[in-house]
Computed example of a mutant assay.
Amino acid sequence: MVDPWFAVQELGSKTFAISEYGHWEKVHSFLLIGEIQAALIDTGLGIVPIKRITDQLTELPIIVLTTHVHADHIGGHGDYDTIYVHGDDADWLIHGIKGLSLEQIRKDMARDITIPVPKSFDPDTYKPYQGYPDKLLSDGDTIDLGNRSLGIYHTPGHSPGHISILDHETGYLFTGDLLYSDTPVYAFYPSTSPEDLVNSLEKIASIQKVSKIYGGHNQLGLEPKIFCEILTAIQYLRENNLVRHGTGVHTFQSFSVHF
């Protein structure tokens, strides 16, 4: 599929990454298609409507699974009828994102864009999606797509209601902004929790039968062997009293964190 803004890559049978490489955040959303419905994990920046891509990939009803409520992951939520979010991020979805000013969000949306954007995008008037979710997710929930089930893991730290999603059929683990490579995973804003983030990293490192890890930014796809590195990093961070705000960037071989 050729599109001037989105890059679409098939990751496996009925599984697609929808990426926005023309923006400095290099955001990924993911479409997982079952037999009775499809799940869209996040909806991107909202600079260009992601629905124009999902409409070409499936005619099934789509539920949106929100890994967390930050502007770069909820940009297209308004184009879909069914929105799921963890209960601890629901207030942010309804009333606005805490810890990030609208001025900062607009600045982040507008900077370092390397390909043309539509005339309809104006960073000076950009507003993150706000609305009421159709379902509140909890740790341990299962989403049935029809011969394809997704497991929900509550993995707070980057936001209170951040979730990771395991596709039981493929072993793909979608980690949102809990884990990705190339740039630091951040938990330095007042609305974040370094301790929760580290606990969440430890939690996903114990998940069995993960075949691939797909974060919300940068490199598309990490190998599960990174879990061993994560556990070693966690031990180092805890033993050196670094799991707290203000300790800065901590860089390891395959990933980094910013507290």
Rank of each mutant, 00 (worst) to 15 (best):
F259G: 00
Q235L: 06
E229F: 15
H168A: 07
P156K: 02
L45P: 09
T82P: 00
E169H: 04
D122L: 11
S149G: 01
E59K: 11
L40Q: 11
I97K: 01
S164A: 14
N218R: 06
D196K: 12
F30A: 03
I163E: 02
G96H: 07
A187L: 05
I105K: 13
L93H: 03
L32T: 12
L102R: 09
M109A: 15
H162P: 05
D196Q: 10
H250D: 03
F16A: 11
A17C: 10
S206N: 03
I97Y: 01
I41Y: 15
A110Q: 11
T170W: 09
G75L: 05
T183A: 01
N241A: 03
G140C: 12
S256M: 05
I53L: 08
T155A: 03
G248C: 13
V69Y: 05
S19G: 07
G96N: 02
Q130D: 00
G131I: 00
T183S: 11
K225C: 07
L45W: 03
G34H: 12
K212H: 08
T58Q: 10
L32Y: 08
T82Q: 01
K98I: 06
L237V: 13
Q37F: 00
V257A: 05
S138H: 04
L231M: 15
E223P: 10
G12H: 03
V249C: 10
E229W: 04
S149Q: 14
G140L: 00
A205P: 15
G221L: 15
G76W: 15
K203S: 02
R106I: 14
G87K: 15
A205C: 10
